[in-house]
Each structure stands twice: as C-alpha cells, then as structure tokens.
Computed example of a mutant assay.
Amino acid sequence: MTADLFADQPRSPSRQALAEGAWVLQAFAQDRQQALLDEIEALLAQAPLRHLLTPSGHTMSVAMSNCGALGWVSDARGYRYDALDQLTGKPWPPMPALFERLALEAATAAGFEGFRPDACLINHYVPGAKLSLHQDRDERDRRQPIVSVSLGLPAVFQFGGLTRSGPLQRTRLESGDVVVWGGPSRLAYHGVAALAEGEHGLTGRCRYNLTFRRAG
C-alpha cells in the first residue's frame, strides 16, 4: 500500500484553467479539511452512504449521500433530485454553514458570484471506484456553476468538452483542491478515473468528494 507522504504538508494555493469558465483551485480548502471531514461524519450518521442503481440497473461503484434541501438520487425511474432520503424516508440533513461558505467562496474565486447551493452530493471512493464520463444535466438552473471539493486520497479528474467523444484533460486532484466549472463549460463531460490504492493521513484508504449544485 502506498502512503500519501504529502497529505499533511501545506501547499501554496494556485489556479489552473481547464477551459473557459472552468478552474482548478489548488489547495483552496486546505485549511478546512479536518473541519469538513468532521461535518461529513456527522452528516453520514444521519444519512448513511449507499450505492445507487443507475436506470439501466448497474450499481455505482461510488457510494454516496446528500445534504441540503435537495438530494440527487438514481434508480429505475431515472436520475433526479428529491427532498427526501429514500433510505430513511426523512429530509436530507441541512447543509452545514461551513459547506455553504466554502462553495460561495470557491465559486466567487472562479468568477461566479452569488452562488447559493441547495444540494451537496457526498461521494465516497475506495480504491477501484470511479465515476464514468457524464454531464450534470438534472439541475433546473444551469446558469449556476458546479463546485467540487476533494478530500483524502488523490484522484485523476477527467474534464472534456460538450461531446462525450471529445478530447479529455486529466488532472491530479489533491486533498483540499476545488474544481469549479460553469458558463460555457457548465455541461462539459467529466468523470473520475479509478481511484488508485493508497493511504491518506486524514481519511485513510478512501477519498471524499463534495459536489455543490443549485438544483431547484
């Protein structure tokens, strides 16, 4: 097993452009990692992780949950947002103020002011888990950006264009990195390559991803 020897080493914040309206904000959430993980732990005690089924009947390798007014769900009926957790029958846990503040600050840093997410997907990756190329099309207001926060093991983020067959950029995301995309890149295809084996100082043998959206 490969240890992430640099998990706790401070990095200098920087920005990398992926496309028009798309940025990687490196180390943007670096100083909030432990606080974010503490919030995740509390949220998952209320809305546990689960592996959703796709409409075609496949089980997603990434486990997930949600917080906020709306949660993203998938089953034989299709992809959609719902105010209730299908597992518990209760509303999703409220989005922590720390989450909302980070999403707003990251969106503003990427040129999208006034972002107020009402949904946060909590994705949990173990080695081998991946997210196939897809577009985020289930939100009503696509004028709002997507904000994605990485915590734990590094991952290879794949970012393409408006067609599935277009060229891909592959970017290594470290714990504390944030990706923001909107505007002309709002419907860009994107995904995560299979997570490599490893051990991270904060999360152990896994990666968390927080994806903020304005869904309603």
Rank of each mutant, 00 (worst) to 15 (best):
A194H: 10
G128E: 09
L104H: 12
R213Y: 01
K130D: 12
L70E: 02
H58D: 15
F112T: 07
G68K: 00
D8K: 14
S56C: 05
S175Y: 08
T88N: 08
D136Q: 10
S61Q: 15
A3Q: 15
Q46G: 06
V73D: 05
Q158I: 13
G89Y: 06
E174W: 13
P94A: 13
N209P: 10
G201M: 09
I146S: 04
Q46M: 09
P55L: 04
G160F: 12
F115M: 11
T171A: 04
W72H: 02
P55W: 06
G176M: 08
R214Q: 02
Q135H: 06
L87M: 11
V126N: 10
G216Q: 08
A76S: 15
Q158T: 13
E199Q: 15
L5N: 14
E113P: 06
S185N: 10
A155F: 12
Q144Y: 05
A42H: 11
V147M: 05
P167M: 09
D31R: 15
T88L: 03
G198A: 07
R101Y: 01
A63L: 13
L195G: 03
M95R: 00
V126A: 13
Y125L: 03
L121S: 05
G21D: 09
P13L: 04
S132I: 07
D138E: 15
A103G: 10
T108H: 12
L210H: 04
F28Q: 07
E199Y: 15
A193E: 15
G78L: 03
L18I: 11
L210K: 04
A107F: 02
V192R: 13
S74E: 05
A97I: 03
P96V: 01
F212C: 00
A155H: 07
L5E: 14
T59Q: 13
L43H: 03
V180F: 07
R213E: 01
H134V: 08
G183C: 11
V62C: 14
Q169H: 11
W23S: 06
P167Y: 07
S65P: 09
Q9K: 13
R137Q: 12
A107R: 07
N209V: 03
Y189A: 10
G111Y: 04
A42Y: 04
E20N: 13
A3G: 11
P96F: 02
L49Q: 02
H58Q: 14
L53R: 14
L121K: 05
D75A: 11
L52P: 07
E174T: 03
C206I: 00
G114R: 07
M60G: 08
A63H: 11
L131M: 15
P13H: 02
A17W: 05
